[in-house]
Design a protein around this nucleic acid. Sequence first.
DNA 1: ATCATGATTGTTTCT
DNA 2: AGAAACAATCATGAT
Length: 169
Amino acid sequence: MRAAKGKGAAKISKEALKPVDDGRVGKRKAAAADDKSSKRKARKEKRAKKDPNKPKRPPSAFFVFLEEFRKEFKKENPNVKGVAAVGKAGGDKWKSLSDAEKAPYEAKAAKRKAEYEKQMKAYNKKQESGADDGDEESERSRSEEGQAPEEEEEEEVEDEEEEDDEDDD
DNA sequence: ATCATGATTGTTTCT
DNA sequence: AGAAACAATCATGAT
């Protein structure tokens, strides 16, 4: 039996302590309509760069889990329209999952991250090609080996399932 | 009609 | 090392 890693279950304590709408959306305090500068998304106009090729951050295990959770949540709660509702419900359930259950999500997230690195590499390459608006970020990932010998844009990632023999029961 | 926001946690990135 | 931002989602509010 693969006993747990000594991770019992006693860390859930705080919950239901934040402003939340019962699933109904539309309760903003003051729309940030002041700064139209920001195109969209971005609580604060911090990084407003137009990088169409820039790969977005890979979804964390929680987000991977959320994607699936959202489907079910909406299926059983077609009336709920707010995203916050799923967010909270997902967060609650997420904490309810055990490490073993989160494992598959983490594994998937890890895959996403691996792809992200690859995409980022291609993105950096493009930036090298010809893209300087002026203040480009300092080139941090520019190993001498990445001289772009080949062009890999999308590679199929073989799914490597980890065999976890958890035969209890 | 279009953009922004609300909320969750995890990862990413910067300083 | 820590903090801040952002990743998806979806309907509604506001401009």
